[in-house]
């Protein structure tokens, strides 16, 4: 039974690593700021999964409490990020991260 537990924990951690990597790749590849925000959320969720897994493995509740705080941070980040995106799009609909060229150079 314990062997199964071990494998499952490893599985959780590897799954989280894969989700994190996919999210990171998405941030680098995608141009739409909204999709980039979603990819950042994906990365944060991968970390949440890691934290809960460590919490189980260490038998320590702190990991789960950290997830709560990450949820708050993610919510705050999304609110502010979407606010900025809306403010930009009001000025220029359909803006992508590449259209934002004023600063390039």
């Amino acid at each position: 039974m314990n062997v199964d537990t071990i494998d499952l924990n490893a599985g959780y951690l590897v799954l989280a690593a894969m989700l994190f990597a996919i999210g990171a790749a998405g941030v680098l590849v995608r141009r739409n700021p909204l999709v980039i925000v979603m990819c950042v959320e994906l990365m944060l969720n991968a970390v949440n999964l890691t934290l809960v897994t460590f919490s189980t493995m260490l038998n320590d509740i702190a990991g789960q409490i950290m997830v709560l705080f990450v949820l708050v941070v993610a919510a705050a980040e999304v609110v502010v990020g979407l606010g900025i995106i809306v403010a930009i799009s009001r000025r220029r609909p359909g803006a992508t991260a590449d259209d934002i060229r004023v600063l390039r150079g």
Binding site: A10, L13, V14, A17, M18, A21, I22, A24, A25, L28
Partner: peptide, 18 residues
């Protein structure tokens, strides 16, 4: 570059558990 970063991350992070 993104693919390489992703593979490195997966390999690196998953690797350390083993």
């Amino acid at each position: 570059a993104a693919v390489i970063v992703a593979l490195l991350l997966i390999g690196g992070i998953a690797g350390i558990f083993f």
